[in-house]
């Protein structure tokens, strides 16, 4: 579905054509897409919650588990300090994103000089934060596998990796989009005219952040 949205980019021709609302075609489509994504992540989160506590074997998210056959003890899987750090990084990326948008919208205006007024700097920071989040997730997944939880182990593994994996895939698409935008900025420089494109990308990015806010509480913190 990310393809469907991305396909909207560079597509609209509202600058030469009359529109009913005066709004940008792609921005309307992006909000409709985000509405649709609410249902996708709603279904994924619902499934995780419905299956919570229904795994017949461990390991489990919040309690240690002793394998009755081998007698091996598995610790509680979720690592709150690490995930809190990655959550913080993703929250900050949203700040960088709005600052990047402000820098593009106000390019050349007083107060937007130097590094802190540079859209390149903020776009790069946002992308970097996205990459750091993904690195955290990769670290998290590998350490869970080492602790004995794969996607095949139990219902918790199946629903956990599917939910967070889908979110990670959305972050990855966002990073790709950010890097493309950064590339354009370096190549020809974004101007206030391009602000709408950054605005639409920002909506996607913030939505991915908002989904993580829900996941962090519902999956990680509530036991």
């Amino acid at each position: 579905m990310a393809t469907a949205t991305a396909a909207g980019a560079h597509e609209a021709h509202e600058h030469t054509h009359y529109t009913t609302t005066g709004l940008n075609h792609r921005k309307i489509a992006m909000w409709a897409f985000i509405g649709s994504e609410c249902m996708l992540f709603g279904s994924l989160i619902t499934t995780y919650l419905v299956y919570k506590g229904r795994s017949v074997v461990g390991p489990f998210p919040h309690q240690p588990w002793t394998d009755p056959v081998s007698g091996k003890v598995f610790p509680a899987i979720l690592d709150i300090p690490v995930t809190s750090a990655s959550t913080f990084v993703l929250l900050m990326s949203s700040l960088f994103m709005v600052l990047a948008l402000a820098a593009v919208e106000n390019k050349g205006k007083p107060g937007y000089e130097g590094l802190l007024g540079s859209s390149k700097f903020w776009l790069a920071s946002t992308a970097a934060a996205g990459v750091i989040f993904l690195v955290f997730q990769a670290y998290e997944f590998t350490s869970f596998v080492h602790l004995g939880l794969t996607i095949k182990t139990n219902l918790f593994g199946s629903s956990f990796y599917t939910l967070t994996g889908f979110h990670g895939a959305h972050v990855a698409v966002g990073v790709l989009w950010l890097m493309t935008m950064l590339f354009i900025d370096i190549k020809r420089g974004l101007t206030p005219k391009d602000a709408i494109n950054v605005d639409i990308m920002a909506l996607y990015w913030h939505f991915v952040d908002v989904v993580w806010i829900a996941i962090f509480t519902l999956v990680y913190l509530i036991q």
Binding site: M1, T3, A4, T5, A7, G8, E14, T19, T20, T21, L23, H25, R26, I28, A29, A32, F33, S36
Partner: peptide
């Protein structure tokens, strides 16, 4: 499903914004 979704975003935008 990809086909139906892409078309739906398209028509929603068309109806809202191209009357």
């Amino acid at each position: 499903g990809i086909s139906s979704l892409a078309a739906a975003f398209n028509f929603i935008t068309t109806i809202i914004n191209m009357r």
